[in-house]
Amino acid sequence: MGKGMWVFAELAETAVRKVTFEILSNVRPIADKKGEEVCAVFVGKTIPEAAADQCAAYGAHKVYIIEHDALASYTSDGYAKALADFINKQQPSIVLFGATVVGKDLSAKVAAKVNAGLATDCTAINLDDSGNFNVRRPMYAGKVYADIGFPNAPIIMASIRPNVLIPTPPDASKKAAVEKVTPEIAAGDIRVTIVETIKTAAAKVDLTEAEIIISGGRGMKEAANFKMLEEMADVIGATVGASRAAVDAGWKTVSDQVGQTGKVVSPNLYIACGISGSIQHYAGMGTSKVIVAINKDPEAPIFTKCDYGIVDDLFKIVPVMTQELKKLKAEG
């Protein structure tokens, strides 16, 4: 087995995604115990200079920057070729990714290329008593958790769910060695053409990365009523989600759906408005740190498995709640 614990450092436009820092600071103590280096690996056309320092502040000993004109936008073909070739050359022991849209796509392709073992969407990383690297991950959309080991893997890979591992405070005095790498990408390596990128005006922060989520369900009654949730969201910096019932009714789009067949989220605070709390919905948000339910039905199953509940008409509660939160925010 090789040496070095790598973290694929993912950019959102020019900013490093938070999940990258979450992974870096949590893999560092593991690497220290094993006597290995932590390396952040960027792939792209031009990586912003500050990005490397940020990774150092969160625990990277070394930052590899793989740059090529053909890597300006993410493609599975391009990024996986660049990263897999470099992995084959350097032979790290472990490569970790954020379990984002890009991270899940890339990790699966790279793992197939380099013959790695891969665990998706992990919520914990550990060394066992014998010094083996293990992960914990939800299965069946969180109805079951499993500890996963990699006994036969020549190289270990895992993608880590955003918002779960707690980052250490950054230390700006820490510096990392930066090494630029030029990948070999030939014409024809990238078989897919990006025709267009369509940005939907909606969410500022994606549900999977949001710290606070306010979701509406069947009890919202119609699409226009989600404006009420948007207003509360603006006050506390939340992202608005929806239950399957609300999506199937056409009030919100599929990309807003939280649940077993939607997005699995893990915010600090999840406020469910007019959501009864089916097993499928719970599977998508059960790992939220604090869950609040507002529902007029005292028998709604969600009240049996959340932290705080208000039994009342959400149309009465949500507007006054927004005002109360505004007051609290004004107090600082």
């Binding site: 013959n115 790695a116 073992g117 891969l118 665990a119 293990n134 939800p138 299965m139 969180g142 109805k143 079951v144 958790y145 499993a146 500890d147 996963i148 080991g149 990699f150 006994p151 036969n152 893997a153 020549p154 059960g286 790992t287």
Partner: peptide, 12 residues
């Protein structure tokens, strides 16, 4: 042939 393996399952 598996390179990852469930060691232990538990209910949350």
């Amino acid at each position: 042939g598996a390179k990852s393996k469930v060691l232990k399952c538990y209910s949350p």
